[in-house]
């Protein structure tokens, strides 16, 4: 009974996940669980191992050690930091292509749903190369969501967007969260992490320094402000 309850609520589970590149440790012994409809923010300084961890979770990199459930790409949507779509193809063509590659049973329905959710139906025949950075990123995320995954992984999704585009993008992501999609995203924006994430995973030099809610991070660092708490915890752990 307890096991079936876990299967229902846990969307992603990592246990002792590590990755080494030619003797260099990029990620070391990271463990966490992501429940259905939960949002996890991966924060940490540059080179902390956030992208490596997300790549392992997405099935793009094989871990050197540790376990992942589910393993591989099934049921997981992946949105890399740089838009990974074909600029010469239209929005609809990109969505249709990835729907077929993901093995979606009704690709046209999925394309319709994504055009609706991104608000880009009017521009569905426009080549992606002619879109603004914000719209390109929306198509990039829509491609990650085309197979209606249980978990959506985003690597710095708002890094190149202005505040208005960021707000619109988070509206779009939150709609999916409300529908039960779990989200893990990497970011340098502590405010963004505080605003949208229920859990924070703090990485530095590949090591997991903290896992908990934003409020718990402030308590652990004895700081009232999340920005200062983040810096204080890094300093306290010698980073």
């Amino acid at each position: 009974m307890a096991r079936s309850a876990k299967l229902v609520t846990v969307a992603l589970e990592a246990a002792g996940l590590s990755k080494r590149f030619a003797g260099r440790v990029a990620v070391h012994n990271v463990s966490f669980t992501l429940k259905a409809g939960e949002v996890l923010a991966l924060i940490g300084p540059n080179g902390a191992g956030k992208t490596t961890l997300l790549s392992m979770l997405a099935g793009g990199l094989a871990p050197s050690a540790g376990e992942l459930h589910p393993s591989g790409a099934a049921g997981i949507g992946w949105v890399p930091q740089q838009t990974a779509i074909y600029s010469k193809l239209s929005i609809a063509e990109n969505l249709r292509l990835f729907a077929r590659l993901e093995g979606v049973t009704e690709p046209e329905t999925a394309v319709d749903a994504m055009l609706e959710q991104t608000g880009l139906r009017e521009r569905s025949d426009d080549a992606v190369g002619r879109l603004s950075g914000g719209n390109r990123q929306r198509v990039n995320i829509a491609v990650g969501l085309i197979a209606n995954p249980a978990v959506l992984l985003l690597d710095e999704p708002t890094a190149s967007l202005d505040p208005r585009q960021r707000a619109r993008l988070w509206e779009f992501i939150n709609l999916r969260v409300a529908a039960g999609t779990s989200v893990a995203f990497a970011t340098h924006e502590i405010g963004e992490a505080e605003r949208y994430a229920s859990q924070l995973l703090l990485l530095a030099d590949g090591e997991m320094l903290f896992l908990g809610s934003p409020a718990e991070l402030c308590t652990a660092a004895q700081e009232g402000n999340l920005d200062r708490a983040f810096l204080a915890l890094l300093a306290a752990r010698g980073h």
């Binding site: 790549s55 997405a58 099935g59 793009g60 591989g72 790409a73 099934a74 992946w78 890399p80 740089q82 838009t83 990974a84 779509i85 074909y86 600029s87 990835f98 590659l101 993901e102 491609v143």
Partner: peptide, 13 residues
Amino acid sequence: EENTLGRLRRGLV
């Protein structure tokens, strides 16, 4: 160039 290699190789092809 289009950054699609990583996306394709995570189990799609």
